[in-house]
Structures are given as structure tokens and as C-alpha cells.
Simulated scan of single mutants.
Amino acid sequence: MYQPHEFAPTDTGYRGPVPSWEPGAPSLWLVDARQEGERARRLAPDILDDEELGRAGSLVVEADRLCYLASHVALRMLLGARLGVAPAAVPLRREPCPSCGGPHGRPATDGGVHFSLSHTRGIALLAFAGTPVGADVEATPQARTVAEIGDQLHPAERRELAELPEDQRPAAFVRAWTRKEAYLKGTGFGLAGGLSHDHLGTGPHPQPGPAGWTVTDVAVPAGHAAAVAVRTAGRAPATAADRRK
């Protein structure tokens, strides 16, 4: 299990560690939006672009707006620190979708840095690596949510959930969900890639990831689960054939 850095900027910028990694291992940051949200609100006009500011402004719930601002300010500050440019100057774009070729694949930037951002109300997880990477953080759902959408998982994971006492199923479900979503975000397919194709497990430790990927859990506050998936160096970009049946 990875232990992420805690993101803590000042009102004049970020002075903490710069994202760095070994081959096959991501660099991770946790953002506490409840603590950093107001500072991010002050910094955002000088850091985020018009699209990001517009997206934040469209969020109705204040907690969601602050989490968006805190996570995107953190992303630009950390990328800027790695690339040696001002946060506002970080060039962000979308790669082609590996399924249809449309401009809605993995988020990307120039300079050989791959990254992924995930947030749930109150906290965000950022991952950086030298190869494609996906991250996901989620709050543990209520039991009725597990009952409603648990059948989207791999058949083996559905059996694992069914064998558990009901009060243990939400934590087991969210472990599997974050592992799946981290992997799918790393490939560029996202949830459209389907949650039933790969068995990553509901237990305390992930099953071996799909060929060419390493999936690892991430330490996050109680009541949440998180995971990160990193593509093995040298593997070709994902295609539709990577979706194992």
C-alpha cells in the first residue's frame, strides 16, 4: 500500500517535494480540500484557466466547488514544479480515446509526465508517473448502493461480496471499485471500459493486475478507499483489445 504525500501550499505558492518516481512506481499526493479549499479559492484566478474556473463555478454544492479548486490548483502546482514552469503555464490537453479516437482520452501534458486526478467530496488524490497512470479515491458507500450496483463487478468479485457478512460488503466493494476505476482511467477508457472484465478482487490486497499493469491500494482517511494503476514501462498504448473478457 502506498502512503501519499500531503499537499500543503502557502499563499504564495508550493514549496514541497517535487513529483519524482522510480520505473513502475507512481508519485502520489493527497489533497485535503476541507483544509486547503479556501486557500485554493484565493489562488485559483491566477492559476487555473477559463475552462477550469468555469467548471468550478458550475458546481452547485460549495464542498464540491472547493474540492475541485483545491485539486486542480494542486495539480497545476505539482506539474509546474516538475516541469519547471509557472502553474498557470502548464499545458494541459486530452489524448485521443483508445476506443473511438475522440478527444476525450486520458488527460496529459507535455514533458514526459503522466498524471491522474480523482476526487470525492472533501479529498483528492493525484498520481504522477513516467508511464500512463490512473488513480481513484472514493468514499465508502452505503449498503444499499452496493446492492444496487455490485452486479457491475467481475463475477468472481460478486461471489466474494456475496460470501461476506452484509456489514463488510461496502468496504470490500469500494476496494474493488477503486482498483477497477484506477486501471480504467490509466488505460484511457474510463468507466466506459466496463467493470466486469478484470478480476482485481475485493479483499485487503489486490489480485495481480491486468497484463502490463500494476495495481496498488493507497492509504487514505478512514471511510474511504483509493488505488493507483501504473502501466509497465515499454508496454504499447492501450487499445480496445486490452479489455480482457
Score class of each variant (00 low, 15 high):
R231A: 10
A227V: 12
A156R: 12
H114A: 00
T145A: 15
S118E: 03
L153W: 08
I123D: 09
T109A: 08
G212Y: 02
A182P: 08
F189N: 07
P221V: 04
A192T: 12
A139W: 07
A241N: 12
P221I: 03
A227I: 12
S118N: 08
R243A: 12
R235E: 13
A238H: 09
R235F: 12
P155S: 01
A108T: 14
A240I: 13
T145V: 15
A124V: 10
G194N: 07
T140D: 08
A236K: 14
R144F: 04
R159C: 07
R231L: 02
P155Q: 04
P204N: 04
L191T: 03
E157P: 12
V218S: 13
F173W: 12
A172D: 07
G122A: 07
P155W: 02
A222Y: 00
T109Q: 11
G112T: 11
T145G: 00
G130D: 02
R175V: 06
G212I: 02
V174P: 05
A147W: 02
P165R: 10
A229W: 01
D242K: 04
R169V: 12
A172Q: 11
H199C: 06
G193I: 11
G188R: 03
L126D: 06
W213H: 03
H119S: 13
A143M: 07
T232P: 08
D242P: 10
A124D: 09
L191C: 11
Y183W: 15
D110I: 01
D198L: 05
D167M: 05
P208C: 06
S196V: 00
G188Y: 03
A226Y: 04
L200S: 05
G223R: 07
G190N: 01
L126H: 06
G194L: 08
G134V: 01
L161H: 04
S196Y: 04
W177Y: 09
L126A: 00
A143S: 14
A127D: 06
A176V: 10
K245G: 15
A225S: 15
A236V: 08
